[in-house]
Structure formats: C-alpha cells, structure tokens
Design a protein around this nucleic acid. Structure first.
Length: 514
RNA sequence: GGCCCUAUCGUCUAGAGGCCUAGGACAUAGCCCUCUCAAGGCUAAGACUCGGGUUCGAAUCCCGAUAGGGUCACCA
C-alpha cells in the first residue's frame, strides 16, 4: 500500500512557518515512502477567505521545492481540491449520518448556546454540548429537518473510551462523555472543518494524517466521524508545535506584527521595502516563509532548518540537504516536545548552503536584490555583469543571504560614494593620513598590472619602507575607496575599481582628510 | 476550571538502566590566523525542573509535585 498524506491550509495570504513545517514533515515522509502528497485548500469559511490569498501559499511551496502530487494547479483524480467546491459531498455525508441516526439537527439558538457555555464556565467545568434532539428517533429528526433546516451535530456515543493510536504520542484515550457533540454542518449547508476534513480524508484515501499537536483533542471526535462514515481509521501523527524564538509560546498566526522589531524592519527596508509596505502586508514578518524569501535566504536552508526543528537525524548532523532528508526522515525520530524557532541557527544554515552554491546561481540570485535596491537597471549590460561577478567573487563567503550583496556592492555601483562619518573620523581624520594616502597613491600610479597581487606587493613594500603596520594603511585606504571600514579584501577592491577610479577616490579622500 | 500533552545547556538536539566526568550544533566569550569584516582553527562557559520510590546501579522506569503548552467555537 502506498501512503497518501495531505496538507490542508486555509487561504490566509501567507505561508506560516509552523504550517510549512507540518507540510514538510508530510512531504518528507511521503517522498521517503513513495506515496502521494495532496494539497487541499480548506476554504469552507468563506468569511475568512480573500480571493488573492491562495497564490502566496502555492508560490511559497514552489519556492521551497515542496511539490504536491495532487491539488490546485496540478489536479488529480479527486478534483476539486478546494473545499468550497465540495459542499455537496459534505452535505450528502451529513445527511447520511442524519438518516442513520448518528447525527441530529440542533435548533438551539446562539443565545441558548452562549448561556450554556457561560454556565459551564461559572461552574468551572468544561462545556460539553448535548443537543436536546440527540436521543430522539432518526425518523423524527429527519422529518423535523425536512420541515426546517438547522445546524447538524454529530452524536458522540456515551460511556465509550475514544482511542487514538498516535504514531508520535502513542496510545491516547479520552472518555467520550467529555467530548461535546460537534457541529458538522451549518443550517445554510456549509460544512465545518472537523467534518469536511474527515470526509475529504476518506474520499481522498489519506492514509497518514500528520498535523500539529493542537489537533490531538479534535481527533477523538473525528474518530467517531470516521467510524460513522464506515471508513477505516488513518494513521495519526501529531507533531509538537513550533514555539516563538526563545519562548514557550506557540508561534501563532495571530499577532505576527509583534515580530516586526526595529531590527527586522531595518532589514526589510534595506532590501527596498517601505514602511507602508511593512505595515500593510501581513506576510512581511519572520513568522512567514516569504520574509526569508524577500531577504534572500536559500530555500534549501529553510527546508533543512525546519526539518531539524523537532526532528533529528542523529547526534551530530545539522547540514542535511533535501535528498538526504528524504532518504532518512522518519516519524520515530520526531521529538515529543515543542521546539522554539531559532532565527540565528537558520541564518547560519543559510550561510552554509550559500557556501556551496555554484557561482552562476549566486549571481542570478543576487541580481534581483541589486535591482530592488536601485543599484542596477533591468537588463544589465555585459560589462556591468562582469563587474558584479567580480564583486561576488571577491565577497566570497561574506554573502550568506542574497541581500548581503547590497552593502558589499554599493560602493561599486553608486555613482557618488557615501562615506560613513564614523569611519571618516576614525580613519581619515587623524593627522598625517592625507600625506600617507597621497604618497601611496603616487606609488601605485604606475603599478602594472593593476591587479590584486601586484597592489598587495606594493602596499607591503610601502609599509616596510616606511616602517608602518599594514593595518594602519589598509583601513584609511578602504574608507577612501569605499566609504566604509568593513568590506572584502582591499586589493580586490582596487582591482575592481581600476586604476583611474581608485586614484580618483584616493584623491577625494586626501581632500576630506585635509 | 475540566480534560489531554510535555519537561536535558539561552536555543535546536543526542541519550532506549551501567558506554554519561551527559555528546554535537547555533548563539555567547577568549585566543590564533589576518588587511577591516566574514570564513577557518583552538579553547572556555553553559543542562538532566524538584521530591519520593524501583534497582547493585536512574537523564533513562514508576508515582507525586511544579512549571509550560494544547484544547474545551456555527475558526481552521
């Protein structure tokens, strides 16, 4: 038997880190076992859906390389994969339960329901709903429903022990008297998640349900639905939730705005986002996938990181590329306890993946960021492309995420160099600096060839002759050439700038240095 | 509050009764390398929540406490 898994996001407009991790576990297990991974869109709650909210989710998965075997865009034997297009299926299923007396209409008003709930709250007990009609005959209930439609509830059997044999949590049980009768169909015929989900899982032939731990307590009621619908039980695996960084709180979809710290905001602005965009787009924060995409993280790194969050290969391996992930992933090695999301570790891993990225891909990845930062205009000519290639080569492992190219390339692509006032004060202002720069500048006027190796030699010879520590000269020159005190190798900087531009900038610096 | 789940360095984790003086990774600190920054190398600091059992022996098994989390919707 091949396994079939699913991930069922609701179209919210963004792909949440916690959700994508769940999807990833599903996908990895499916790939490992050679089954099918189904993407199903849970859009039964029309109030919460926005028409443009699906694409970001699909694009997010595609960017990560998590390809679904059935679902939107790719189709499959169970079309449609949108719950909004399957209302009749749920209705028929609900009606069949009504016919069999396994469900009943509930005419209680919201006010009555609320009153009951409040009472339960006052008495400090859980609210367990039992509708007045649950024990009436199925004929009576059916007639009543035909006269006047109403929400339909599942009838949870009394005095039973509900069992969920979970692949991660182990055998879990619950007294059915503690499980309220869940609503499965609204009066207007729209199904509720708990029901639609099970109906679809049955008709799609889902064999393994891997989902977040918060669904465990829903599962007891769902087992009753599976049974009522005459279906065999799939295997369940409830994975621990993802917590906020350095916290024991769930990384929630609510209130993601709080993750937009001043630091995060600065990063987003550095790649070209405006405050308005940051405030108005709900996917520009570290709890979503697109945040990392917009900052230039390699998708492989996010996948690797997320896979390691709550799962481990062994006692030491951290760097696990996707093919290895697929060949080694197993539910047995999924942890029992929640895991906090650690942006630092993700960043480190992103750097590890960047180290092994072929140069052409690195260049291709950097270009859009240079464009967005207005350092480059769309079709860059081949000369500019050559320039960028040499910048990226010189930058080496300093580029960990693509957006790192921006500060590194700025001094070479901006027509006017901006000098960091602090760097100027520290390295250009001290007395004697002007003369130093001037005399070194004169020395290299005739350097040939004007390349990194030659200039390196010139500088060291110059320092030896003047009995100067190289660092004392390197930093002022760096500020003279790039305006900043940090950057890649100085001699690469010279070579990239070329003789004329280098001498020009040294000349400017002499004036500033006074 | 009821029910359920969880508990190893700040964080991710290894650990299936003796291989544990608890291992690795990220982050942190120091040193080395060096042309600043990265990268790299070395080193340091840093954890079994607590209390009872069981056992010759417990991070590991059991019970209890504590703490955290989840859930109790006409949300998904």
């Amino acid at each position: 038997m091949t396994i079939r898994t699913r991930f069922a996001p609701s179209p919210t407009g963004y792909l949440h880190i916690g959700g994508v991790r769940t999807a990833l576990f599903n996908w990895l297990l499916t790939k490992r076992m050679g089954g099918q991974f189904v993407l199903r869109i849970d859009d039964t709650d029309a109030d919460r859906n926005r028409p443009d909210a699906l694409n970001p989710i699909l694009e997010g998965f595609q960017w990560l390389g998590i390809q679904w075997d059935e679902g939107p865009q790719v189709g499959g034997p169970h079309t449609p994969y949108f719950q909004s297009g399957r209302l009749e299926v749920y209705q028929n299923a609900a009606f069949s339960l009504l016919e069999k007396g396994l469900a009943y209409p509930d005419y209680m008003t919201r006010e009555e329901l609320d009153a009951d709930r409040q009472l339960a709250d006052q008495q400090k007990r859980a609210y367990i709903h039992r509708g007045p009609l649950r024990d009436h005959s199925k004929e009576e209930n059916r007639l009543r429903y035909q006269e006047k439609s109403a929400p339909i509830r599942l009838r949870i059997p009394e005095n039973k022990t509900l069992l969920v044999d979970d692949l991660i949590c182990g055998p879990c049980k619950q007294d059915s008297n503690l499980v309220g009768d869940p609503l499965i169909l609204r009066a207007d015929g729209r199904a509720l998640y708990n029901f639609a989900s099970v109906v679809d899982d049955i008709s799609f032939g889902i064999t393994h349900i891997i989902r977040a731990r918060e669904h465990l307590s829903n599962t007891y009621a769902q087992t009753v639905i599976f049974e009522a619908l005459g279906a065999s039980m799939p295997k369940f695996a409830h994975i621990p939730v993802v917590n906020e960084p350095k916290s024991k709180k769930k990384l929630s979809k609510r209130d993601m705005a709080k993750f937009v710290t001043t630091e995060v905001r600065a990063k987003l602005k550095s790649v070209g986002f405006t405050d308005d965009q940051i405030n108005n787009r709900d996917d520009l924060n570290p709890a979503t996938v697109s945040y990392y995409r917009e900052l230039g993280y390699l998708p492989e790194a996010l996948v690797n990181y997320l896979a390691r969050l709550g799962w481990s290969l062994d006692d030491k391996t951290e760097f696990i590329p996707i093919p290895e992930l697929i060949s080694h992933f197993s539910l047995e090695r999924v942890n029992d306890s929640p895991a906090s999301f650690d942006p630092d570790k993700l960043f480190w891993l992103a750097g590890e993946y960047m180290k092994i990225l072929p140069k052409d891909k690195k260049i291709a990845g950097c270009l859009p960021f240079l464009e967005k930062a207005n350092l480059l205009h769309d079709p860059a000519d081949s000369q500019t492309l050559d320039l960028i290639e040499s910048i990226i080569s010189a930058a080496g492992e300093r580029i960990k995420i693509f957006s790192d190219i921006i500060p590194l390339a700025t001094p070479f692509l901006k027509p006017i160099i901006e000098r960091d006032p602090q760097a100027v004060d520290k390295f250009l202002k001290p007395p004697g600096t002007a003369n130093l720069i001037k005399s070194f500048s004169e020395k290299i006027e005739t350097a040939s060839p004007f390349d990194a190796m030659t200039l390196d030699q010139y500088l060291h010879d110059f320092c030896k002759a003047t009995d100067l520590k190289p660092g004392k000269l390197v930093q002022p020159i760096r500020v003279a050439l790039t305006g900043t005190s940090v950057g890649f190798g100085l001699f690469d900087t010279f070579a990239i700038l070329g003789r004329d531009e280098s001498l020009e900038r040294l000349g400017q610096a002499v004036l500033i240095s006074g």
